[in-house]
């Protein structure tokens, strides 16, 4: 799972109101190189929850993103490369996503989070 996916996903347990962002527990991170698409990054920047991305990438061992970012930074190639790397090249391969409100763990195996709920969570 890439951090772009993580950035849009909330805990889906019934009754949880602050389910975003899911905390990440890392057992294994994989990096896969992809081509940088500048227009895509510009578009995504407006949609991304920046703080959640910064925190998630740090948990995954990548601490190059600045705490705050604004759209003027998209003119910098260096910034774009870092943003691109954090958003699209880091994969959580093994670990868990943790509901920030209840602490419930959603396991991640082979890169796939299991967000299925138990009967009493629906």
């Amino acid at each position: 799972m890439r951090l772009l996916t993580h950035n849009m996903l909330s805990s889906n347990i019934k009754g949880v109101t602050n389910g975003f962002p899911l905390r990440i527990e890392v057992e294994k991170v994989v990096e896969k190189e992809v081509d940088l698409n500048m227009d895509f990054l510009r578009n995504m920047f407006a949609k991304i929850e920046w703080k959640a991305l910064v925190e998630a990438s740090r948990t995954m061992g990548y601490s190059e993103l600045p705490d705050d970012a604004e759209s003027s930074m998209l003119d910098s190639d260096e910034f774009l490369r870092k943003f691109h790397h954090a958003l699209l090249e880091l994969h959580l391969e093994e670990g868990a996503l943790v509901c920030p409100e209840t602490g419930r763990k959603f396991p991640v195996n082979k890169g796939i989070p299991n967000m299925l709920l138990h009967e009493d969570e629906v």
Binding site: L9, G19, G111, M115, L117, V122
Partner: peptide, 17 residues
Amino acid sequence: DFIQCDIRNLRLSDRAI
């Protein structure tokens, strides 16, 4: 990317897709 879930109780940010 893949997510195992029941679509009926999925919670994604509005308009993320």
